[in-house]
Amino acid sequence: MRVKARLFATLRDHLPEDASDNMVEVELSEEATVGDLLDELAVPADEVRVTMVNGRARPRDWELEPDDEVGIFPPVGGG
């Protein structure tokens, strides 16, 4: 299945060269999880604080569905 992943802030350094802006489309096996997506993108797990699937925070073992949109964030804060 294909999903769309967006990498934000410092994680943009891990975007593949063919990424458009901060978004990349990734081909994953059925039943792949958020954690599998991070592995596929080679984003170090300890740099990631928040992962959102379709706008909801989801854990690493969350199973993805085709066409899911995943936002991947390092620790961020502001006010």
């Binding site: 967006r6 934000f8 802030a9 410092t10 928040v50 959102m52 706008g55 909801r56 925070a57 936002g71 964030f73 390092p74 620790p75 961020v76 804060g77 502001g78 006010g79």
Partner: peptide, 19 residues
């Protein structure tokens, strides 16, 4: 770090993503 590099507006994307 996050605030020193991107400023407080680093929050725009994460709040937008969260709807």
């Amino acid at each position: 770090g996050g605030l020193n590099m991107y400023g407080t507006a680093v929050l725009i994307n994460i709040l937008n993503e969260a709807g």
